[in-house]
Design a protein around this nucleic acid. Structure first.
Lengths: 125, 125
DNA sequence: AAACTAGGTTACTAAAAGAGAGTAACACAC
DNA sequence: GTGTGTTACTCTCTTTTAGTAACCTAGTTT
């Protein structure tokens, strides 16, 4: 069995596209929000502050296409659509939450570094 | 001591910007490449297939500003510039490599899911 | 003296994201 | 039975961002 070697450093490898989406600002936040359990479209829009309807739709479609999120339509009259993580999506949420946690834990260091950098690089004496 | 609560789900929280960069296509690849050790600009450009000089410069400047990458200039005549991870950068590389590993490990599932999705959503009968 | 080197910067263009109005489909109030 | 409200989009338009390619520096080789 020839097991293909996935290499995201090669721009033509399919894994590059996957890494691109996995490392996408909205994907990280949407998957993070869905770790709390199933959510409907409007709930996600509210949780992920600043996301436009267009980008939320697009992100969810992409995640659905990759089998990370399941979409359930309830035939009701104001429409009701629920999104939830699949098993794949749940396994992805681990490294994604790790990123989120790293960010929160390292904010003080980063803020300090930014101030130092900006002070040194824009003296504008 | 009032410890601020960082919330990347709030679009105005500074942690949002950091998560944006941390979850950036080029940042993930550049940091991944630098886990192998210090690299010069041209080496990174070659390793991270498809990145333009502009985006590589921009990504490295951003990482440098956040204190994740250190930039060393050697005053030579063709110039020589080396980049390497700082301690912060090395701690970030853990969740980032986890993402990369997850991607590689889950490619078969994703490829299958994509084919199923595309087959179902573009029958073009 | 023309060409090459490494690590950029600049100008221009193409692609993507954001903003905001519009749509469907029916339930309910009036 | 006309009007309003609801949800999950979709379309159009404008602004941002990314990509492409040419240019720059300045000493070194041909």
């Amino acid at each position: 069995m020839n097991e293909p070697v996935w290499d995201p450093y090669d721009r033509n490898c399919p894994s590059r596209q996957v890494l691109d989406r996995v490392g996408d600002r909205w994907s990280v936040l949407v998957v993070g929000a869905l770790t709390q359990g199933p959510r409907r479209f409007s709930e996600l829009a509210k949780t992920v502050d600043g996301v436009s309807q267009k980008m939320l739709t697009q992100t969810l479609r992409g995640l659905e296409r990759d089998g990370l999120v399941a979409r359930t339509i309830f035939a009701q009259i104001p429409p009701r659509v629920e999104y939830e993580l699949t098993a794949s999506g749940r396994s992805l949420s681990e490294p994604m939450l790790a990123l989120e946690e790293w960010t929160k834990a390292n904010m003080p260091r980063i803020v300090t570094a930014r101030e130092a950098y900006d002070g040194a690089h824009a003296p504008k004496a």
